[in-house]
Design a protein around this nucleic acid. Structure first.
Lengths: 173, 173
DNA sequence: GCTAAATAGTCGCAATTGCAACTATCTAGA
DNA sequence: TCTAGATAGTTGCAATTGCGACTATTTAGC
């Protein structure tokens, strides 16, 4: 008789000495994040040739109305600055993003989307939102709110949500 | 004036044409999974020199009472078989896992933990459970149940939860 | 029984990405 | 002003891991 992957508590050992991977939240989050990423990648990768870091750069620039530095994007998306650097290089090569020197601080560049980048962004956003809603459609509106709230609490307790004050301290604005 | 990372709806554009990365569930799941993994890795990586695939192999063997094949572990943890193969090789080199040929099917091996592997597993489990509880301690008991239930619903709708019947079909038992 | 397709496991290759060193620049303090 | 330390961004290197080809073996259909 085949055993199911997710079974009841295995017999023969006292509670606490075993761990059911399928009920272990860190494992579930990893697996779920990988699956959701994979489900969305068809939108930005296959259709527009973007990878995740590139999409994060566009998403950050698109949501803000003004230009910002690569470092800002690295901080607020929690992506390593070298990864963002490579993404920006690729986006500039495709003329989706442009950058101008900052007169006040010549170490950094101000990044902004080109018209071409904005056009791509405008076509991509509705598709991604639709996909997200499809994924969450198994939850009721109330469950979705609760889920988002729980995510927010965990993010907050892990220090993932940076406050305005924090942003100022780290210079990430 | 510094802008917070997570701000209100940006003005000047109609709703739907923008996307706030910080409210976008796929991004949040990715970021949270990475952070939680990183928080747990100190337990199994720094303390015991295990990486995630190796930990998944031990977790699967430890939860079941009987031996199983590498392919079973690959299927049920949704990890590529080559990744599991490398993890098993490393675990055998450290004598944490052993394998025996299957008389009935000489393509596959039966994997089981050694005494040394079981001892490591028994020391590791309580630490990981404690870490998980710390991470979830920002939620009430009810919120934790709701969160787990929501995860389950999403997993189910994405086909991540394999039933006993499915396990039989894929031979993953 | 023979052949084709399927499956378990291994391994080389390549893509991704974090780390750390590096350059250029800015800031603070003596 | 000069120097030490901090910061923005780039790049080489290495670790991780998915993909696909490969071998060995099993199963199914003829």
């Amino acid at each position: 008789m085949p055993k199911a992957f997710s079974s009841k508590v295995a017999p023969g050992l006292r509670q606490g000495s075993k761990l059911d991977l399928f009920r272990f939240v860190p494992f579930r989050l990893n697996r779920l994040a990988a699956e959701v990423s994979s489900a969305l990648s068809s939108e930005y990768r296959e259709r527009y040739g973007l990878d995740i870091p590139e999409w994060r750069v566009l998403a950050t620039l698109g949501f803000r109305n003004d230009a910002c530095s690569a470092q800002y994007i690295a901080h607020c998306t929690r992506t390593h600055k070298s990864t963002i650097s490579r993404a920006v290089t690729a986006l500039m090569a495709r003329q989706l993003v442009e950058r101008v020197e900052n007169e006040d601080d010549r170490r950094e560049f101000q990044l902004r989307m080109t018209r071409k980048g904005q056009a791509l962004y405008q076509k991509l956003i509705p598709r991604l939102k639709r996909r997200e809603q499809e994924i969450l459609s198994c939850l009721t509106a109330q469950q979705r709110r609760d889920f988002a709230r729980a995510l927010g609490k965990i993010e907050h307790s892990l220090g993932l949500v940076q406050t305005s004050k924090e942003a100022k301290r780290t210079g990430a604005y």
